[in-house]
Amino acid sequence: MNLHEHDKKIINQLQGGFPICENPWKELEKTLEIPADEIISRIKKMKSEGVISRFGPMYHAEKMGGGLTLAAMKVDKERYDEVTEIVNSFSEVAHNYEREHELSMWFVIATELPQQVQQVIDKIEQKTGINVYNMPKLQEFFLGLKFEI
């Protein structure tokens, strides 16, 4: 994907933070030396093309009182599609990835309340007959969030 120089500048700058104030674009105009309406239209375009998957605040699920975990399962090739369908059918399953490993399915469970995580895991185990490895984060290491492009 070929990005315009300004698109790159916008991504690099805005990964670090979007100002919370009445005129956020005014601050960015100065930093980026790009007019506000151009920044907005470039973000809109990149969002519609999928280059940017999100614009806005990202909330911390656990601090909001919710539950969050990473879970993994050993799923055989023969049952992979069937199990994918079962796991994806849970609205609490936010992301699900196939990975090259005996533990071949990795998914994120996000719930409104912490105790619901175990309930979702129990249901997935019942419906699939496969053991779920529950791997909640015990410690998070700060991410500068970067990806210079």
Binding site: I11, F18, G50, M58, F147
Partner: peptide
Amino acid sequence: MTDQGIIRRSGVVPNHYKL
């Protein structure tokens, strides 16, 4: 909410794959 960590950060999230 940002000071309290309820908002982790605000800004754009690039799609690594598309980039």
